[in-house]
Structure formats: C-alpha cells, structure tokens
Design a binder for these strands. Structure first.
Lengths: 159, 159
DNA sequence: CGGACGGTCATCCTTTTGGGTGATTTTTTA
DNA sequence: TAAAAAATCACCCAAAAGGATGACCGTCCG
C-alpha cells in the first residue's frame, strides 16, 4: 500500500522511489528548458552572454539554496567546549528527538514559529508539530513555560 | 521532491549516501552517452556546451560559498555569562515603570497574561497594556523576545 | 492650578500559539 | 527486510497574544 501504483508504473531501477523519479523529471525539465533557450539564441546568432548569464544566475541561485539547506543539519562540532550542565540523559529520558531539540533551542532564542520554520527550511506546520510534541514531553502548554522548564531540566546547551 | 532533488545535487558536500551516489553516477553516465551522441551532430557547438557547463559549475560553487559566507553566524566567542547583575540604571534609562517591571518578571516566569492579571489583581486588559508598553520600550514584539532582551540588559533580579 | 506621569480598563482587530487529527515519507533499528 | 521511530506537511478550531486607540483617575510637582 505504501509504494503501490506510482512505483509500479515507472520502475526503471528496482526499488526506485517516487522522489527519485520526481528528481529525475525535474532535472530533465530543467535540461529541456535550457535546450530551448539555447536553440532560440543559437539560431539567431551566437549570443553567449545572455545564455551564460541565465545559467550563471540560475545555478548560483541553486547553489545558495542548496548550500544553505544542507549546512543546517551540520551539527557544527565546534561546540565541544565544556557544556555547562547539558543533561543529555534527560533528553533521552523524555524522548525528545533531535529536531524537537532544535526547535526548543530556537524557541528559547525568542523566535516565532514562522521564523523557526524559515531557519530550518521546513513548513510552519512542521514546526508546530514539533513544538506540540515538545510541549507534551515537557508537560507545558506555552513556549515561555517551555523555556523555564528546559532550563530547570538542563536541556539547553547554553545559559 | 524538494529535498531529494537538492540532496542529489549536493550530496558531495554532505552525507553522500550510497543510493544517491549510485543514482548520480547513473545520471552522469547517461549524460555522457547523450553528449557523445550529440557530439556527432553538433560538433560546432561543443565549445558552447563546455562554456555553459563551466559557468554552471562555477556559479553554483560561488552560490554555495556566498550563501554560506553571508549567513553563517559568528562562532559564538565563548559565551561569557554576561551581566548577572541587576542593572537599575538601564531600567530608568528605558523608562520602564515599576508595574511594567513586575509584569516583565512574571512574563519571564512563563505566566500567561491572564495568570499575571490574577496575580497582580488587575484586569487582563491592564496587563496587556503594560506588556505592550514594555515591548515598545524593550523594542521587541513578543514575550519570548522580551525575555531574552531583559536578560541581556540585566534587567531581571534573578538569573 | 494644571500638566505630566503612572496605573487602570476598554474595544476592535490581526497575528500567533496551542491542541487535535490524519497522512506520507524518510531514517533508524531490530 | 520488516517494524518502529522520526520527520514532514496539512486542515481545523479555539485560545492567547499583540497592535492601536481612547478614556478615566490618582498623585506629584512646578
């Protein structure tokens, strides 16, 4: 029921999931677009500048976006420096996941859910889900109470 | 789609799971084959292809680099527990009244406006007025931000 | 006396949060 | 590989918070 119809329809490689297919299609479309642009300019003389500029802008945009997106998860191993009273056991004891912990820290920094969503490159709904479960695990019902609770539990890295 | 797409694009910079790598290699081979075929018919545009490809790679690299450079926040130079002192001057300097300060402290304790109102024996509206003026003076727009601001200003008696 | 200030309360309106439910996809683990 | 856990996103609804404005009432001080 999970990978039923879509996978069965087009299955070049065994076990290829829908997302891979979508990725392939997306890249294919991108290539087609580039080709179209290319031909348009090629047939009416060689205007390399415009085409090159488009490629430059497009891929630089992709670079910025992808670079940002994939360095968020990098846990930055720099902070090996003496954590004050970072009680890791408490976190596992409460069953707080990594993502939830991230959200918690951003909450304590005073960010709104929308700001957190932007920072983590996820949707607002996702942040709300994380925070909801977090509050449940911390046994609180508001972010300000969560801040205090997290502090008294020693869950936060700083402060 | 978004995630898988970008993951494959930039998997070299990160985890680089086997699946993505294999997929990428397959795609690469496919592209090479296409290029070979294309070369037979479009010999004259070969230079153009290389040119465009170089631009793409170059600017995507620039994008990643620039994106990282301008968003990575400074490595937090040893969080020296700032002023744990009660800076009374700051309070007068900002024109925060006694009642507003009371509200501020109750806010940092995680109380809701209603709870604060009950505690101070005033109406909810009054608390909202106080907090509104408080936020204005602290130059924030939410209680969680007010908490952090108050701390960095040394306005709070405790912690 | 008459402002200025602080405290109180109100109304209207918008945005943000919190709570509940359900679903799909990805990752981890047994 | 199959099951469990984590992460993602959506939709609905209600409560809380925030912004803007206006008003009333004490007290204090020039």
């Amino acid at each position: 029921m999970r990978k039923s119809h879509a996978t069965a329809v087009i299955c070049f490689f065994e076990g290829m999931r829908k997302t891979y297919l979508l990725y392939g299609l997306g890249l294919g479309l991108l290539l087609i677009v580039l080709k179209l642009i290319e031909y348009q300019f090629l047939v009416r003389m060689h205007i390399f500048e415009i085409y090159g500029g488009l490629i430059a802008v497009l891929f630089m945009g992709i670079g910025v976006w992808a670079g940002l997106k994939f360095t968020r998860k990098a846990p930055a191993p720099i902070i090996v420096q003496a954590p004050p009273v970072f009680d890791e056991n408490k976190i596992k004891e409460l069953g707080i996941s990594k993502r939830e912990l991230e959200v918690l820290e951003l909450i304590t920094q005073g960010l709104t859910n929308q700001e957190i969503a932007d920072k983590l490159f996820v949707s607002l709904n996702t942040v709300k889900t994380h925070s909801a479960r977090l509050f449940e695990k911390l046994d609180v019902n508001s972010r300000t109470k969560a801040i205090n609770r997290a502090k008294e539990l020693g869950i936060l890295k700083v402060n």
